[in-house]
């Protein structure tokens, strides 16, 4: 069976696209899938750093599309999982270095060998975004519970529809539990109301993310953290499993939490 190419996008920068790609990549690899992560953020490459693989880069995606090397030579095998690979972006080039047609051709090749291709999309809606979504089968939109991020996500939903990538799924990242409890946070239900797309996951704000990003060890590897559990659940949902949205408040029951999150609690 051919692999699936999923592009992780957001419009707004800094909401956690790269972190999401790294964690979902490892999560799917943990489930035994053949996974490749493609960093399409050319000129601002980050995924290699988050994965702790920067020191292994010799060739990059532009070298591949320009025919300077074979795909195999540019793929970096993860140091933890044998079935997880990274195709790094070029740092010294700009977004137009890869065209949508080259991206499509690349994905066609990768789909033959991998179950999942996760594409880390650059922020923005210009050329880089259009190149990154070319050839993808499905899109995952990452947003944070902020009006500006949701507005940008909405713009992206529209652009994806226009590019024949309908029905994206949504990850709400960096949800602050105590602020939800106080009712100070943008309601998840309101976000879904505006975007009206399927919810794929809710990831709580977690200080461990910063530590893990700086160390090059994605948080999903850390059993105890809440963000890790959230990402593991998302990977299972990608695999088609029905996983209830986790309780973000220990001992309080997830139904109550979800109700509060959704604004249903009276």
């Amino acid at each position: 069976m051919e692999g699936r190419a999923l592009v992780i996008t957001s419009g707004k920068g800094g909401v956690g696209k790269t972190t999401t790609v790294a964690n979902l990549g490892i999560g799917l690899a943990m489930l035994g899938r053949q996974v490749v992560m493609v960093d399409a953020d050319i000129g601002l490459r980050n995924l290699d750093i988050v994965m702790g693989l920067e020191n292994r880069i010799v060739y990059d995606i532009v070298n591949v599309t320009e025919g300077k090397c074979k795909i195999r030579q540019a793929l970096i095998r993860d140091k933890r999982f044998d079935n997880l690979f990274l195709l790094p972006a070029a740092q010294s080039r700009d977004k137009d270095a890869v065209t949508p047609d080259q991206m499509k051709a690349l994905l066609t090749e990768l789909k033959k060998e991998f179950d999942y291709i996760l594409i880390d999309c650059p922020a923005g809606i210009e050329g880089g975004f259009k190149n990154a979504i070319a050839g993808a089968d499905k899109a995952i939109i990452v947003t944070t519970p902020e009006v500006s991020a949701v507005r940008d996500a909405d713009r992206i939903v529209g652009l994806l529809e226009a590019s024949d990538l309908p029905d994206p799924r949504l990850i709400v990242n960096r949800v602050k539990i105590d602020m939800v409890r106080r009712g100070d946070m943008l309601d998840i239900r309101d976000i879904l109301d505006i975007l009206s797309i399927e919810l794929l996951g809710i990831v709580p704000e977690d200080e461990n993310i910063i530590v893990s990003t700086n160390r090059g060890e994605p948080v999903i590897l850390d059993d105890g953290s809440r963000a890790s559990q959230a990402f593991r659940n998302i990977t299972r949902r990608l695999e088609g499993e029905e996983v209830p949205f986790m309780s973000l408040e220990p001992g309080n029951g997830f139904i109550a939490f979800i109700k509060r999150l959704m604004g249903l609690a009276r």
Partner: peptide, 15 residues
Amino acid sequence: PTQLRVANVIARAPD
């Protein structure tokens, strides 16, 4: 260095 190369030999920084 992140990575050092001399001629055709590559060495990378320890993890």
